[in-house]
Amino acid sequence: MVVVKSPILRHIRRKPLQFVAPVVTLILVLYLIVGRSSGKTKGKYSYKSRSKGLFSRPRDVIPRNLPNDHISHYDLNKLASTPMAAYNQERVLILSPMSRFYDEYWANLLKLTYPRELIELGFIVPRTADGDVALKKLEKAVKLVQSPRNSKEAKFAKITILRQDNESLQSQKEKDRHALSVQKERRANMALARNSLLFTTIGPYTSWVLWLDADIVETPNTLIQDLAGHDKPVISANCYQRYFDDEKKEDSIRPYDFNNWVESDEGLRIASTMSDDDIIVEGYHDIATYRPLMAHFYDPNGDVNTEMQLDGVGGAAVMVKADVHRDGAMFPSFPFYHLIETEGFAKMAKRLGYEVFGLPNYLVFHFNE
């Protein structure tokens, strides 16, 4: 047998660390490179994942659902409000100021066909006797829907209930709350409540905000998809009311919300004569503005998708792209161009460059006391 003694082997035997150290260093470098390139995209509003390599650190954007993360990053430039909201899995925030709880309102809400896991609900309840009763009923209804026994698809993504921190009218009877003499006070309080509800609940993932009054007891089941499908910054349904016609001895319908309107020359003239603290309240004979009211444009044989441009809106069922609110359109609790609350919101949205629309043939129905 012939044995060849290599000088390299002799060197390794004499000084093994000089050979092992470079090899370990090479393996470590390769591990770091592979670990840092293993990030994946996860979720619509999440981006590069945290590096898994040794001594790694978070990327510039940290994904939302990883454990041990203390900072969440959202890119609002990637947030969209599209006419295919359900298909694109866009989050919808339904907001309802609630002075009374109506079983019909809640039943109608549960019939909406938009995926519940994409819906958040927000309520604000006044600190009145009626509000206390409404709160108890609301909490009971919420617990049934959000029960751990229900599937994820049967539950809403999130529900927030606020107690109003400003004054509210003690009487919520229809004749009392609609009296002209209390409109400025009532609507100023309502504006504060709406703003509190909005600013507390809107999130960086919210694409749409649906304002749905808590006394709206009947809407199409596809309300969210229908309103979003028009792809408008602000769009309002036409609010009517069912009642029994004593003269005709039959069930009938009548206009209810007169806050969806188009500005008129007379309305502008009246505003020009007012002091800074005065407001115009639409739908009252005492102030004849002769504004075209969307409630009077309903055609039972017309296309439900017919649109008309508006200058004022009510709050019965109004879909708003979330960016409109993020850009600063809120509900003024003070006279804003002699308008207040929802009508003031429409004016503010238009001043920000957004168009406001209504659907005269698309009806939602108000509770009939």
Rank of each mutant, 00 (worst) to 15 (best):
K42R: 13
I119A: 01
V29K: 07
K143W: 09
P58E: 12
L112W: 08
A322T: 12
F331Y: 12
T25C: 07
L363E: 02
L144C: 06
I202Y: 06
Y114E: 11
H73Y: 04
V356D: 03
V4S: 03
P204W: 00
P58Y: 08
S151H: 08
D311G: 03
A157E: 10
Y243H: 12
D60M: 14
F244W: 14
R59L: 10
D276W: 05
I279V: 05
V262I: 15
I27Q: 02
D246C: 09
W211N: 05
M1K: 10
H285R: 11
K143C: 13
V125W: 09
N259C: 05
R242Q: 15
S99T: 04
K232D: 15
K78D: 03
I279P: 07
G203T: 09
S81T: 04
D246F: 07
A179T: 05
Q164F: 09
L95R: 11
M308L: 08
N260M: 09
D226P: 00
H338W: 08
Y45I: 00
A86P: 12
T201K: 07
H70S: 09
D251K: 07
K248L: 13
H73A: 03
A188P: 13
R269V: 09
D251T: 06
F19R: 00
N108A: 11
N166R: 04
S46V: 04
Y284P: 14
V281F: 13
S147R: 02
Q225T: 02
N260S: 13
L54Y: 05
M348C: 06
N88H: 10
D303P: 01
D299W: 07
E167T: 07
L293C: 05
V61T: 12
L76F: 13
K175Q: 10
S6W: 14
G314E: 15
P332S: 02
D103N: 13
I235Y: 00
E139A: 10
A80E: 14
K143T: 12
N301A: 11
P292K: 03
E247I: 12
K111D: 05
E250F: 10
L212Y: 01
G344A: 01
H70I: 12
I159A: 13
I8Q: 14
D277A: 02
S151Y: 12
I253F: 08
K78L: 15
F345L: 00
Q225S: 08
Q170W: 01
H178L: 15
Y114P: 14
F331I: 02
V20Q: 03
E247F: 12
